[in-house]
Computed example of a mutant assay.
Amino acid sequence: MSAESSPTRDVSTKEAEEALFDASAANDVDGVREALAQGASIEARGGGGRTPLVTATKANAVAAASALIEAGADVNAKDDMQDSAFLYAGAEGLDEILALTLAHGADVQSLNRFGGTALIPASEHGYGETVRTLIRAGVPVNHVNDPGWTALQEAVVYGDGSSRYVDVVGQLLDAGADPSIHDDRGRTALQNAQQRGQREVAALLAAP
């Protein structure tokens, strides 16, 4: 019997969706497309409430994420930890996937489990290019998250004053970040920078 005439086995939706999650995590584009063709829901939910796209994003599986997004995956769908592909890519500096989500309807106002925007953890981690992308996309720079921090405050409090944090603080200030906003202890970003000995950051914050 030739390969062309070999009978194909019917695949259940459950099997197709299991294959889709496996392919998404493994960055297997052909596997993603095959599973979708076999009837897997592109918005299926797996462990932790993750969609295939969130699964691919958390594995930094760029090719698989791209295939899913091009096939119509919701870039704003959140898992049980309130991570969407957009929010997670922004928080972790996954710039290729972040760009894909922004090109396909990412909600720049969306909030993570801490009540913060994607810009806040990006600033906390000192991801300069990610911060630049998020600012350009219109993510609010003065949003205050549930613990009481802005992106500017987190760049200072969780940063180390190194050049990458100087870059991030400069970007935030240029984008209109308000250095007078106090944290939940009543301190400004400048006061926090001075307390931590972050001289270059403090100089930026003190500039008129």
Rank of each mutant, 00 (worst) to 15 (best):
V166D: 01
R199K: 14
V11S: 01
L134H: 06
I120Y: 02
P140R: 13
P7K: 07
A23Y: 11
I42S: 11
Q195F: 10
G31F: 02
Q171T: 07
S5E: 13
V166T: 03
G115A: 03
A118G: 10
R136I: 00
E92N: 11
D83M: 12
H104E: 06
G90A: 02
L98S: 07
T51S: 15
G48I: 07
K14P: 00
R50E: 14
Q82A: 14
K14E: 11
Y88F: 13
R199Q: 14
A122N: 06
P208H: 00
A203C: 00
L100I: 03
Q171K: 15
S41Q: 09
A44Q: 08
A118N: 09
V54R: 14
L94S: 04
L102N: 05
A67N: 05
T130K: 00
A59G: 10
S5D: 08
L111D: 01
A175K: 04
L94I: 13
V32D: 14
L205W: 07
N142D: 15
A44V: 11
D183E: 08
V32A: 11
D183W: 04
E17Q: 15
S24L: 09
A19H: 04
L53Y: 12
E154W: 08
A3N: 04
A56S: 12
M1S: 02
A106E: 08
